Simulated scan of single mutants.
Amino acid sequence: MPFYLGAFLAVALDWRAQARNVVLQTQTLQDLEARVVALEEENKTLGRQNEAHQASLKLAQEAKEEAEKQLDEAMELQIDFYAREVTLQVQADKLERMEGEMTTQAKVLGLLQVDHNKLQIEVSRLRVEKEALEKLVASGDATIEELEKDKKTLIHDMRGNLRGGVQRGSGPGRL
């Protein structure tokens, strides 16, 4: 084999290797481009998923804020409820004390009513006694008037007797 043919064959083999490398590189480049396109698509998909996740996260954050707001309102309502419950308990205690006082006052009133009834009976008895004493006084006054009349009559009679005896002549020294 001549030298030039050997050189040609070496160059041809070299070109063939280069061509094969170019084909391989082209295939690799195409594979890489396909991979880049796939990765870009995957990146777009991930971007959309990220946007969806961001929207979900924003919605979740808004829901969390709303839940916290509702929780705060519920806590305020619960505090108001407890305050009202305490107020009602205090009022119930006051009412219970007042009922106890009313019961005590009712008992005192009952005792006062009994005392009042006793006093009414005593007043009635004293009225009857007063009327009896007034009748007795009126009777005594009548008796006194009668005794006064008798006294006057007796005095008159005694004067008459004394005058009669003095006039009969006995004198003042005789009786």
Rank of each mutant, 00 (worst) to 15 (best):
E129Q: 12
F8R: 10
S124V: 04
N161S: 10
G165C: 14
E33Q: 10
A34T: 01
I121V: 13
T26M: 04
Q54N: 03
K151I: 11
L46A: 12
V166L: 14
K94N: 08
L59N: 15
L57K: 10
L13C: 06
E131Y: 00
D31G: 07
L133A: 08
V22M: 06
V166Q: 03
A92F: 03
V23A: 15
L126S: 13
F8M: 09
L13Q: 05
R159P: 00
L57W: 03
M102E: 04
Q49R: 13
E62M: 06
V108T: 06
S139P: 01
A52K: 06
A67H: 11
F81G: 07
R84F: 04
I144M: 01
L46W: 07
Q61K: 11
E122N: 05
R35T: 03
S56H: 10
E51G: 04
T153P: 00
E122F: 01
D93M: 05
V36D: 05
L88N: 06
Q49W: 04
V166H: 07
S124L: 09
D141H: 10
V166W: 05
Q105C: 02
V37S: 07
Q78S: 13
S56D: 09
H53K: 12
A19K: 14
A7W: 06
R125L: 07
W15N: 14
E40L: 03
V22T: 12
A67P: 01
D150E: 15
A63V: 08
V137G: 02
N43E: 13
V22D: 08
N117V: 07
G140P: 00
S139T: 13
V86C: 01
Y4N: 15
G6R: 09
R127Y: 02
G171M: 03
K151T: 10
L39F: 04
L154Y: 08
L111I: 09
A34I: 03
M1D: 07
E42I: 06
V137K: 10
N21G: 04
V36H: 05
E66S: 08
E40K: 09
A138M: 07
V166M: 08
L88E: 11
L77V: 09
E145C: 00
R174E: 12
F81R: 09
D14M: 13
L95S: 06
Q167D: 15
H116F: 07
K149E: 12
R159K: 11
Q120S: 04
L175N: 07
A74N: 05
H116W: 02
E99S: 09
L77W: 00
E42W: 04
A60I: 05
Y82N: 14
H116M: 11
A17N: 15
E96G: 04
K135C: 00
A7L: 13
M158R: 13
Q113L: 03
A34Y: 01
Q30P: 00
T153E: 13
L9Q: 02
V128Y: 03
A92S: 11
L133R: 09
L59H: 14
V11I: 08
Q61R: 11
Q167C: 06
A34E: 04
A38E: 06
